[in-house]
């Protein structure tokens, strides 16, 4: 129902906030459907990063939407017809929770039965993500890297490192600053935990990268970008993003040279399980570095245009 509220509003600020709430609710729903890793990601990305990015855009483009001059009837008709067709299509779909559904027949039983034996990580999502479907994940890491590049090409980051220590944007908000100061170390610690504990519990490189970046974004929002950029200079971040992808690809190449297939972690150590552990650790680290650096770069790209008219 938040979705409906979101499309009725013409104040885009409210729309973005409602969209954040919608994301958080979706995360709760994912949790209910047993997808803990996904819920985690949705909460960190949807409710955190997306909202900040959208708000930075609104700063640049204006807050209010104009009333549309077109009649909403034709789109409404198109939408209703498409929706009706889709509902008709679901009538022979498998029911929710049916263990005999086609989605559970193909490779999933193998992942569940032999995942612990072959890969050695109790969290099957991590096992499938980093080991069985390592190619996909490499591709997705590359997409994220490319998207980061595209944003940089479109917006550019004007370094404000050389400037005087900036006036802090929220100088008078003592309570907010104190709370943020207390929160940030916890957020960063939690990010590290999620990164390195992803084999056993819910978590992994994607979530950790986002959570870690959220900590720095929070700092940037309250204490000014200049202060964050002194710790994390954009040119360093660009290299970090590339390093993440290279680390991932490098693990693949090493296993290739040691006589296995590309991304075949069994070759990384004498014992296959130890090799899998090492491989997954390195790959997740690559993903984490890449995601963290790209999210930070995107944030800087948007926030550094803030000062312009």
């Amino acid at each position: 129902m938040t979705a409906i509220a979101a499309i009725r509003q013409r104040d885009l600020f409210a729309v973005v906030m409602l969209f954040g709430i919608y994301s958080l609710l979706t995360a709760g729903l994912f949790m209910n459907l047993d997808a803990v890793d996904v819920a985690f990601t949705e909460a960190a990305v949807g409710a955190g990063t997306t909202t900040v990015l959208m708000l930075s855009t609104l700063r640049l483009t204006g807050r209010y939407q104009r009333r549309s001059s077109h009649s909403p009837l034709l789109p409404l008709l198109v939408v209703t017809v498409t929706g009706a067709a889709l509902v008709y299509g679901t009538l022979d779909a498998p029911l929710l929770g049916d263990p005999g559904a086609p989605a559970h027949q193909h490779v999933a039983p193998r992942y569940i039965e032999s995942g612990l034996k072959e890969v050695g990580t109790p969290n099957l999502v991590t096992a499938v993500l980093a080991s069985y479907r390592g190619y996909d994940t490499l591709g997705e890491t590359l997409v994220i890297f490319t998207a980061g590049l595209a944003v940089l090409l479109l917006l550019g980051v004007t370094p404000c490192v050389s400037q005087r220590p900036q006036a802090e944007p929220l100088d008078d908000q003592a309570v907010l600053k104190l709370v943020v100061k207390v929160l940030i170390p916890l957020v960063l610690l939690y990010g590290l935990y999620v990164q390195f504990h992803g084999d056993y519990g819910a978590g992994g490189g994607f979530q950790a990268g986002v959570i870690f970046a959220t900590g720095f974004v929070l700092y940037g929002l309250v204490f000014g970008d200049g202060n964050v950029q002194r710790v994390l200079p954009p040119h360093g971040l660009r290299r970090l993003a590339a390093c993440g992808v290279l680390l991932y690809g490098g693990v693949g190449l090493v296993s290739l040279f040691r006589g296995g297939a590309f991304l075949d972690y069994d070759q990384l150590a004498t014992d296959p399980i130890a090799g899998q552990h090492l491989g997954i650790f390195l790959v997740e680290l690559g993903v984490g570095l890449n995601v963290f650096a790209v999210v930070m770069l995107i944030f800087f790209a948007f926030s550094s245009r803030r000062g312009e008219p």
């Binding site: 997808a35 990305v45 997306t50 990015l53 483009t61 999933a108 096992a127 993500l129 997409v143």
Partner: peptide, 29 residues
Amino acid sequence: YSNPLPHVLILTAIVVGVATLAVGLALIV
């Protein structure tokens, strides 16, 4: 256990989604 495969696909899709959203927002700017 629930099927881990869709979880993996969607987990990565969410992060890719925010990256592509950022590209879209950059284009809007």
